[in-house]
């Protein structure tokens, strides 16, 4: 049903239209939230913001209490037997539905769409979506209907797992028309933040150095806030920012979207 509303926006860079206002006509009646384990454990506010964004976009959100993790940590570590156990639970509890399943994370979504077929040959879960991807391509938003301004110079960090999903400018589209938001370009945006899950602890020096390089590029750009779509990247960058006392903050884009509609 929801596939009928698929659109393919190719506008990027500037806000080219007047922002829509008010509640969007509900064309996607019901979606399922994929909370992700990081938001379950540490970043509840991002989960709450995701629900508010989806509801504002006209969706009715359901939450399956038995969901846990997608299995990416053991998968990336090479323990595919344990990864299959966790992934099987994820499929049964969360994904076996006709409803779209939406996560505030390209990493977890990529695990489902790209990783699961590696674990279970011949399977696919086309109904899993990253939040911005869902709002832009499935709901059909070209901009976010903000009611308030968000005055901040923002460096938008593109999470690497977006590559596996074919994401392009979805988060940018949603953010760029919010009054007050200034998206600041910075050098080498294609570079990873250095998080990489367990890589961040078993390759702690490389991970930190890659992260610091990213932060230097962003500091140099004059941005005040790093906005991303994955709490993994943001948790790692925030840890580095705090340790090095840098004048930067981090935020998930869903939190900003939710803040400007309240």
């Amino acid at each position: 049903m929801w596939q009928e509303f698929r659109t393919n926006p190719r506008t990027a860079g500037r806000c080219e239209q007047s922002p829509p206002s008010g509640i969007i006509e509900p064309n996607v009646p019901r979606v399922r939230l994929f909370l992700t384990c990081l938001c379950d454990a540490f970043f509840g506010e991002v989960g709450i913001a995701t629900v508010k964004c989806l509801e504002h976009a006209g969706c009715e959100v359901e939450f399956v209490e038995s969901q846990t993790c997608c299995g990416q940590p053991p998968f990336n570590a090479g323990d595919w037997a344990d990864a299959r156990r966790v992934a099987t639970h994820c499929r049964t509890a969360l994904l076996e539905t006709k409803l779209p399943v939406v996560a505030p994370s390209s990493s977890c979504t990529a695990m489902v769409r790209h990783g699961f077929p590696m674990l279970f040959e011949g399977t696919e879960h086309e109904n899993a979506f990253e939040l911005a991807e869902f709002l832009v391509h499935e709901v059909g938003l070209q901009a976010w209907p903000a009611k308030k301004e968000y005055k901040r110079k923002i460096a938008l960090h593109r999470a690497c797992h977006g590559r596996a999903l074919g994401l392009t400018n979805e988060q940018e589209l949603l953010l760029q028309c919010i009054p007050g938001v200034e998206l600041i370009p910075f050098n080498h945006p294609e570079q990873c933040c250095g998080f990489g899950g367990a890589f961040s602890v078993n390759h702690k020096n490389l991970s930190a150095n890659i992260g610091l390089e990213k932060l230097h590029q962003i500091l140099e750009s004059g941005a005040e806030e790093i906005v991303g779509g994955d709490m993994g990247c943001l948790m790692h960058l925030d840890g580095l920012i705090q340790r090095n006392k840098m004048p930067l903050t981090v935020r998930h884009f869903a939190e900003i979207l939710a803040e400007v509609i309240e």
Binding site: A41, F42, G44, G239, L240, Q242, R243
Partner: peptide, 21 residues
């Protein structure tokens, strides 16, 4: 230990999702 050598550890910030839900 691997994490905190070069970064601050994340704390639980704001509300818990499941309680809010």
């Amino acid at each position: 230990k691997g994490w905190t050598e070069s970064r601050e550890a994340p704390g639980r910030e704001g509300r818990d999702f499941r309680r809010w839900w």
